[in-house]
Amino acid sequence: MIKIEQLSKIYGQGDDQVVALEPLDQQINAGEFVSIIGPSGCGKSTLLRLIASLEDPTSGSVTLETANLKRPVGFVFQDAVLLPWKTVAENIRFPLDTTGVSRKQANEKVAELVELVGLKGFEKSLPKQLSGGMRQRAAIARALADDPPILLMDEPFSAVDLLTRETLNDELSRIWQKTGKTILLVTHSVEEAAYLGSRVMVMSPRPGRLKATYDVDLAQPRGEQTKRDPKFLDLVSELRTLMREMTS
């Protein structure tokens, strides 16, 4: 689904030059949920932005095997960035309003997504009337509106409280299982990375390099029992140890 070849990113020039990402080779298969962790400034968010073509690489390439779709990637940012004057339904429908989809089809899709992310009953609410977690649910629904095969998420739950974050983790896991999307999630939470991912990529301190990858051998669907699984606890412990070693 995503083929990354010798991908690098350098900002600035001369003495002001910053190597955000050293040449990286990686392949993300269709339907994978890949969590990306690493110290601040290690190129995690830069990698997502390069995959989404929001920035141009210094060298290398990203190839998306998505049948030449007009919009192959949905992006969920740390802040929900909803349009404040539009309702939940209007925000979710916004990508569809620019693609020539009929109003009937768009409304049917919005209703489906509202149900999927658990916002039924809040379709007419404005963003200011929603909690932080509900705004992120709406942002996820909007990113899925025109059915992109790839969903990129840059620390989408970092601004919500722990209980809401755990609930959203469960919701995201359920959405992934139901839709079969290819998801890349940047997070600073080792537990979140292990709980959600089918694979965890660990990035080194800047200049960003791929330090290690871990396949996550945990049963689906995941829930509270997952967090008591010795394999989960061992993986979290190993990831924490690696992170400490890199930052000490």
Rank of each mutant, 00 (worst) to 15 (best):
I2N: 04
K3H: 15
L7E: 00
I10T: 13
Y11N: 04
G12T: 06
Q13Y: 06
G14V: 06
G14D: 07
D15I: 04
D15S: 08
D15F: 02
D16L: 12
V18C: 04
V18W: 02
V18M: 12
V18F: 13
V19P: 00
L21Q: 02
P23R: 00
Q27R: 12
N29E: 15
N29K: 13
F33V: 11
F33S: 09
V34C: 10
G41N: 09
G41H: 05
C42G: 07
K44R: 09
S45E: 05
S45M: 07
L50Y: 00
A52M: 11
L54C: 06
P57M: 04
T58A: 03
G60S: 09
G60M: 08
V62C: 00
V62H: 00
T63Q: 14
E65M: 13
E65T: 09
T66F: 08
T66V: 14
K70I: 15
G74E: 07
F77I: 03
D79T: 15
V81T: 12
L82C: 11
K86C: 05
V88A: 05
V88D: 03
E90T: 10
I92N: 02
R93K: 14
R93P: 00
L96T: 01
L96F: 01
S102T: 13
S102C: 04
R103V: 12
A106L: 03
E108I: 10
V110F: 09
L113S: 01
L113V: 02
L116N: 06
V117C: 04
L119H: 12
F122A: 14
E123A: 14
E123D: 10
S125C: 08
L126V: 04
R137P: 09
I140Q: 01
A141D: 08
A143R: 01
D147Y: 02
I150D: 05
E155V: 14
F157H: 10
A159L: 03
V160K: 06
V160Q: 07
D161F: 14
D161Y: 14
L163S: 12
T167N: 13
T167I: 10
N169R: 12
E171S: 10
E171L: 15
E171Q: 13
L172W: 03
S173P: 00
W176F: 03
K178S: 14
T182L: 06
T182R: 01
L184Y: 07
L185F: 14
V186F: 04
V186W: 04
V186N: 06
T187R: 09
H188L: 07
E192K: 09
Y195P: 04
L196I: 03
L196Q: 06
S198W: 12
R199V: 06
V200A: 02
P205K: 02
P205W: 02
P205S: 07
G208P: 02
R209W: 01
L210T: 03
K211A: 13
K211W: 10
A212V: 02
D215M: 05
V216Y: 10
V216I: 15
V216L: 13
L218S: 11
L218R: 08
A219F: 09
A219N: 13
Q225S: 12
T226S: 11
T226E: 11
K227M: 14
D229A: 10
F232E: 11
L233A: 11
L233Y: 01
D234N: 15
D234E: 15
R240A: 06
L242G: 00
M243S: 13
